[in-house]
Simulated scan of single mutants.
Amino acid sequence: MTKLIKCFEDLKDLPQGTEVFCLNSGGLDSAYLICRLIHDFKFKVHTLTLDVGQNDQVSVCLPNYITKTIDVHTVDAKEEFARDCVLPLIRANGIYLNQHPLSASLSRPLIAKHLVRIAQKYKIETILHSATPSQNSMRRFNTSILDLGFNGLYGSPYLNDNISRIDKASYIRSLGATIEEKRSFSIDTNLFCREFESGDLDNPELMNLNEEMFLWTKSVPSENIKITLEIENGIPVRINNQSFSLVELVSYLNTHLGPFGLGRYLGLEEGPLGKKVIEARETPAGYFLLTAFDHLINASFDYKSLLVKRHLDQLWTCEAVEGRWFGTIKNSIDQFNNEFFKNVSGRLTFDISYKTMDCRSIISSTPRYSTEREFDDLNKEVERAA
C-alpha cells in the first residue's frame, strides 16, 4: 500500500536493517537525511547518483563510517536526459511564463524514474528524497514516483519536519562530516542549464547577481563567429557541417556561445507556498536552440497551425512545472510534437557577436515562405486572368 512519508516519525515503526533508497544530491539536506537513516534508525541505505552533466554540486563529505555502509548506485543518464528531457523541451518551447527555459523540472522526473526502477529491481519498498516544502522539487518527485506506479513508502521527512540548516550542519558535523564554506547562492546544474537561487537572490527588490555564479557566460570572446545549425526531422544534428550527438551538440553550444553572454536569464518563479522567488540561470545552448527551432517552425507551418502549437506549448510547460511529467496531458502533447516535427528539417545560419545573435538564413525543407515575392505576385495575377 502506497504511503507518503511526511516526517521522521513516520519511519519509527520500520525495523532496523530496513532497506531504504535515497537520492544523494551532495548537499546538506540529503547528507542530514542519510546520516539520520544510518546513525539513528540503523537502516540499510542505498543511494542514487544520477549523472545528467552536473559537476559542481557536492558540498558535503559524509563521514567515512557512514559512506562505508552505503550501497551506491551511479547511473550515467546524460544521453537519456538529452534525448528524453532536453529535446522534448526544445520542441515544446518550454519557457516558464516567457521568462526562462525549464531546468530542474526536466531532471526531477528522470531521477524519480531511476529511483523507482532500481528500487523495484532490488525489492526496496521505501524511497526517500530531501526536498523541502519551499522547493518545487517536492511535488515533482512525489508526483513522478506515484505516477510511475511505485507501491511502497515514499516522500520527504522534511514535508512536516522543519529542521534548520544550522541544526542539520551541527548534527552531521558531530558525526565527522565536512561541509564546504557557505556559498552566497544555491545551485542546481545539468548539461543543459545552470540554475541559481537563494542567498544573494532572496530579495527581488535588491538583487545581487554575483559573477562567481556563472561559468559558461563569464568570459569575453575575442572575435565574432558564424554558426550554421542543421535540423533533421526535428532533431539538431550538425553544426557548421560537423555531426554531433545531442549531448555533444549542447556542450558545444554552451562552450562556444557562452563567452558571448548569450543565454542568461533572470525571473520570478512561484513556489509551492504561493510566494515567488528569483531564479537566475545560464543556458547558451537553450537560448540558441529555442531560437533556431522557433525560426524553423515559423518558416515551415501556416499561422493557424502555429497558434495551436503555441497553446499546446504553454500547456506542456505547465504540466512539466507541476511535476506531471508522466501524466496523460504532457505525454499526449509529446506525441503531437513527435508527429509535428516528423518532417521538420532545415538549415539556419546565425551571426554571433557579444550579446547579439542575428539570424542570416533560414532554409526549410517544407517552406511556407516566398523567395521571390514579386515573381509570385505576378504568377497570381496570371492565374486570375486565366
Rank of each mutant, 00 (worst) to 15 (best):
K12Y: 06
S186H: 11
Q16F: 03
Q16L: 07
K182E: 15
N233M: 12
T178G: 03
D167K: 12
T328D: 05
H73E: 13
I239H: 04
S370N: 09
D84V: 03
I118E: 01
S345R: 06
L128I: 13
I225K: 13
C61F: 01
I239M: 07
T47W: 05
R108C: 05
D334I: 10
R238Q: 12
T69P: 01
E80R: 13
L257F: 03
G17E: 01
F293P: 06
E232Q: 11
D358I: 15
I66Y: 02
I297N: 01
P272S: 07
L146K: 14
L378E: 11
R194S: 11
V237K: 00
G27L: 04
A169F: 00
P259A: 01
S30K: 04
F340T: 05
G271I: 08
E211D: 13
S164P: 12
C61R: 08
V52A: 08
K380H: 12
S107Y: 02
W216Y: 14
S361K: 12
Q314S: 13
N224C: 11
P259M: 01
E80V: 11
S300R: 02
G323P: 06
L48Q: 11
V60Y: 00
A77Q: 03
G327A: 08
E270S: 13
S134A: 10
D351N: 13
L315W: 02
M138P: 06
R347L: 14
G199Y: 01
G149A: 00
V45W: 00
E372H: 15
E383L: 13
G17A: 08
L315F: 02
T178E: 10
K276R: 15
S243Y: 03
E195A: 04
L97V: 14
E339K: 10
V220N: 10
C61P: 00
E212M: 00
L146H: 12
E205S: 12
R194L: 03
F350G: 07
V60Q: 06
T356Y: 04
R140K: 10
N142F: 07
R360K: 15
P367I: 01
F41H: 07
E269S: 15
K44T: 09
T47Q: 10
P367Y: 00
N151S: 14
A31D: 05
L33K: 05
Q99R: 14
K78F: 02
D358P: 06
K78L: 09
S361D: 09
I187K: 13
L290S: 02
E230D: 12
A104T: 11
F41G: 03
T126N: 06
T47D: 08
D71T: 15
S137A: 15
E374I: 11
C85W: 01
I227C: 08
D294S: 15
K123V: 13
S144H: 04
R373W: 02
K342S: 15
